[in-house]
């Protein structure tokens, strides 16, 4: 046995292989089973995907680093459930590439913030948080209301997400820019296509208060308002436990 190790360390390549083998066991054992299971991710056939506008908002949420201060993962603890709502299920983030569970709550959890405040509140809050919440330490994001949203390439985004497993249809991909415009412009002709493709529960609204002009603010507010609303699984699941 010691001979083996002696050869190992004399031969650098053998040593390299030993390190790789020894170090990869843990990851394999913990990650591989997560892919074999039905229990890890509860199924919900009715769960919908993000609309192009919400997806654009999610990308801005990522761009601005919101995840550094806001989690989207309500833990199975009594005070969290009372403060934020039913605890998060794995299924709720199954279309999240990548997930935004977060690791720090400098601000509150946002997993179920959708519908909790009005669009108007969100817009005012994002333009200057301290106008609405005295004592907040959140940065102000006034440029969101000024920047027009880039919608021309949203079809490519949907197509890329389909490659990694999100079930966007050809029709959704082809109409992505129109749907992004329509969701933020209730009076426009494109608005009806959004509910047709993404379901009647999809909110169509002039999120930033200005119809027919799609800004980054529209996208972010649309995203915030859908958080926790893509599936009803967490509410119906009740106290059902998690996997083994």
């Amino acid at each position: 046995m010691p001979e083996v190790h002696r050869k190992l360390e004399r031969n650098a390549i053998g040593f390299v292989l030993a390190i790789i083998v020894v170090s990869s066991i843990g990851g394999l054992v913990e990650i591989a089973p997560l892919y074999t299971i039905d229990e890890t991710v509860e199924s919900d056939p009715n769960m919908r995907v993000y609309t192009p506008l919400e997806l654009a908002g999610r990308n801005i949420y990522i761009r601005e680093g919101c995840y550094a201060c806001h989690s989207q993962m309500i833990r199975t603890l009594r005070d969290e459930v009372e403060r934020y709502g039913p605890y998060s299920l794995a299924v709720e983030s199954k279309y999240d590439h990548p997930m935004l569970w977060g690791s720090k709550r400098t601000g509150p959890d946002l997993a179920r913030v959708g519908g909790k405040y009005s669009d108007f509140w969100h817009v005012a809050h994002l333009i200057n948080p301290r106008d609405v919440v005295a004592g907040s330490v959140m940065p102000a994001y006034p440029w969101l209301a000024r920047n027009p949203l880039k919608i021309s390439d949203l079809g490519d985004h949907l197509a890329a997400l389909r490659k990694v497993g999100v079930p966007y249809t050809d029709e959704m991909i082809a109409n992505a820019p129109a749907d992004a415009f329509g969701q933020a412009s209730p009076d426009a002709s494109q608005a009806s296509g959004v509910t047709e493709r993404y379901g009647n529960d999809t909110t169509v609204s002039a999120f930033d208060g200005v119809p027919n002009r799609v800004t980054e603010m529209d996208a972010v507010v649309a995203y915030l308002q859908v958080l926790g609303k893509l599936t009803k699984a967490a509410k119906t699941e009740g106290a059902a436990g998690q996997g083994g």
Partner: peptide, 17 residues
């Protein structure tokens, strides 16, 4: 090879290893 097999493997053979 299903989920339970892998979990059982992780819990037992992982320890022996």
């Amino acid at each position: 090879v299903d989920h339970n097999t892998l979990v059982a493997f992780a819990k037992s053979w992982g320890l022996f290893y």
